[in-house]
Design a protein around this nucleic acid. Structure first.
Length: 669
DNA sequence: GATCCTCGAGTTCT
DNA sequence: CTCGAGGATC
């Protein structure tokens, strides 16, 4: 073997050649050597790196062939949140979007970029000093899954950026997908082997990316289009999106060249129409057009809502529609007892997926669409995912069945049904097996107790065998009982018991959410936990007090007090605590506290509260109490017969609170 | 009182 | 994802 020095040199040469051919092949679409010759280069590099492992850098093309399996995909927090896009299928809504922006920016006309909305898997790629160091899926927008080894196998993802100067840090967003011909080819190979194959390219791409063994990813020919720089350091940030796309291209990314700058919204809408025509002929799947304000400055000026930027809109194509027959209408019972009519359809293929059920929401919706058993209907998959009945189709000469009406007794437990607005509810409460099952599933769900291994099937049979009569019974399960269940062997029984045991140690917000109080989801549960700090305090809170919390109104307050005034609910909660469930009060950082950084001064005789009590209330909420008034004082609390501090406060323009105002401040939020 | 925004709850199929 | 409605804001 050669010496280190010449090995290093040869490795450098090989890397350079391979990268050049990657570029020619994937980016310039102009291959200059045969696949065999390319493989030969790659093999030689591999041999050298094996012999001299310290030269095998992160950006080596050999990393593209895949790394050995990992046990699970680790979470990866994004450098910048990956927001989703507001979307519509209507050109008029796009015009309204434009009008809002023109108003906000005080412009007659806005320059947009319009580009295809790729139907693949959105990724964040992070390059440090020009080298790809991390790739993550979108996940919930804040945290995704680390798929770096898998993404390294994608040939159109540069492992090293090619432009000078290279930024010290750059985060790039783009879409990984499987080109249609590759998808068909993959499915053909899979069916030949007797495997089922993928329903659509998107699923195939997701499957390939989420492989634990990146060698499998390497065998699936994914492609990547970059379309956004989310963060850049150590190099100038392009002032417009068009220039950003050019820069991405200079870095060595593949940019789909269908994008267009548009002078005003009408050009963007025209572009949408053009692409809708061209769609079928494209070598990859798209589901609409993304319209974005081109100028970064204007983007910053209009900002973002919590989940999506205000400066972008996805103008989607009309979803695929299919026609089928309603074979029956079933009624389901939800966690809250709500009855939901569901159309059972003659199975039909909608955009690659077989659909056999579609929700009809409620009695009003059903009536409006006038869907009856035996009718012919047009359906779509909303957002290309969830099936929905669009309308009924008149069939000439068909004799229709009678109008469907909601049952007057619960289809599961037979309890009387109550109408409430557009909805119908089963009055059986937790005596209704359907409600109990749903409640338990909610209790064990991810945002709540997060009990792994407790799926729908398991809960169903547990309730049917009367092993569970309440959520608290979960903590009374034992090995012997579990082994009675069909399909439960010792291993899975032990795993489940361990998951249940582990879940006892739970944060208060999750605990409150798990209770399944009507109108109390994750968000409100968090508010309650933060405000009261303990389960007892929440349970004892009167409605008037709850209403004083920001974002909690009379409806939510009534749901909370209603829940805790119910004897059965109280018993269940007590039972949970007896079983060793220990909700942990949230740890608040000082900055989270409502009165963080606020300075208080008391003056005069405080009625209804002692000074020390008042002081500790303020401190408990993160505020400070001092004895003299200055410009830095935020509030002066004036009791009866206030003295000079009150006057000084007025002079300095400090807010003066009466005792009542103060009390509602420290009790409210 | 109207309007905007966000949350809750229910939804399908693999 | 989508609907409906609760809550905040003007």
């Amino acid at each position: 073997m050669m010496d280190r020095k010449s090995a290093e040199k040869r490795i450098g040469e090989l890397k350079e050649q391979i990268e050049r051919h990657d570029r020619l092949y994937y980016i310039d679409n102009n291959p200059q050597i045969s696949d065999a010759a390319y493989d030969e280069l790659l093999r030689e590099l591999e041999e050298f790196e094996e012999a001299f492992p310290d030269f095998a850098a992160d950006d080596s093309p050999t990393k593209r062939v895949g790394a050995p399996p990992r046990s699970s995909l680790p979470p990866a927090r994004h450098l910048m949140p990956m927001l989703s896009l507001d979307s519509t299928t209507s050109a008029d809504e796009a015009r309204a979007f434009d009008e809002r922006l023109r108003k906000a920016l005080e412009k007659d006309r806005i320059a947009y970029t319009a580009e295809p909305k790729f139907d693949g898997i959105s990724l964040e790629l992070v390059y440090e000093n020009g080298v790809l160091t991390r790739a993550a899926t979108r996940g919930d927008g804040t945290t995704g899954e680390d798929v770096t080894p898998n993404v390294r196998t994608i040939r159109s993802v540069p492992l090293r950026l090619s432009d000078d100067p290279v930024p010290s840090l750059v985060s790039v967003r783009g879409e990984a997908f499987l080109p249609l011909d590759r998808f068909r080819e993959l499915n053909r190979r899979m069916t030949e082997r007797g495997e089922p194959g993928f329903a659509n390219p998107r699923n195939a791409a997701a499957g390939a990316l989420r492989q634990l063994d990146s060698r499998i990813t390497a065998s699936r020919p994914l492609t990547f289009f970059a379309y956004e720089i989310m963060k850049i350091e150590g190099a100038p940030d392009p002032p417009t999106h068009s220039e950003e796309l050019d820069l991405l291209s200079d870095f060595g990314f593949v940019i789909d060249n269908h994008w267009k700058t548009c002078d005003g919204i009408e050009e963007a809408i025209d572009f949408h129409a053009v692409l809708a025509e061209a769609r079928e002929a494209l070598p990859f799947e798209i589901d609409g057009v993304v319209i974005e304000v081109d100028s970064k400055r204007d983007r910053d000026a209009v900002g973002a809502r919590s989940r999506s930027p205000r400066w972008a809109l996805a103008l989607k194509f009309e979803p695929r529609r299919e026609i089928t027959d309603v074979e029956d209408i079933a009624v389901g019972v939800g966690r809250t007892g709500k009855l939901t009519p569901v159309a059972l359809l003659k199975p039909v293929d909608v955009g690659g997926v077989t659909v056999s059920r579609a929700t009809l929401h409620n009695a009003r919706d059903l009536e409006r669409k006038d869907v009856r058993i035996g009718d012919r209907v047009r359906i779509k998959r909303a957002g290309d995912v969830i099936p929905a009945v669009i309308e009924r189709i008149e069939v000439a000469g068909q004799k229709r069945s009678g109008p469907f009406s909601m049952p007057s007794a619960c289809p599961v437990c037979g309890s009387p049904v109550e109408a409430e607005g557009a909805n119908h509810y089963c009055t059986g409460g937790l005596s209704c097996p359907a409600q109990l099952k749903r409640r338990i599933m909610h209790f064990a769900s991810k945002g709540a107790f997060d009990i792994e291994g407790l799926g729908e099937k398991t809960v169903e049979s547990m309730v049917d065998l009367e092993m569970l009569g309440s959520v608290a019974d979960l903590f009374r399960l034992n090995r012997d009982k579990l082994l009675e269940l069909e399909g439960f062997a010792e291993k899975s029984a032990d795993n489940l018991l361990e998951a249940i045991e582990r879940s006892k140690d739970i944060a208060l917000p999750r605990f409150v959410y798990a209770l399944g109080i009507r109108n109390v989801g994750e968000h409100v549960a968090g508010l309650l936990a933060l405000h009261y700090g303990s389960l007892e305090a929440i349970a004892a809170a009167p409605a008037e007090e709850l209403i004083s919390i920001r974002e909690i109104g009379p409806e939510v307050a009534a749901s909370v007090t209603g829940f805790f005034s119910n004897e059965r609910n109280r018993k269940t909660v007590d039972d949970l605590l007896v079983q060793g469930v220990a909700p942990k009060p949230p740890e608040r950082t000082a900055a989270d506290l409502p009165l963080a950084g606020k300075a208080f001064v008391f003056t005069g005789a405080l009625e209804g509260i002692t000074r020390s009590e008042a002081k500790s209330r303020v401190q408990a909420l993160g505020g400070r109490v001092s004895s003299s008034v200055s410009a830095k004082t935020d509030y002066v609390v004036a009791g009866s017969d206030p003295g000079s501090k009150h006057e000084k406060a007025l002079r300095l323009g400090v807010i003066v609170l009466s005792i009542d105002e103060f009390l509602s401040l420290v009790e409210g939020d």
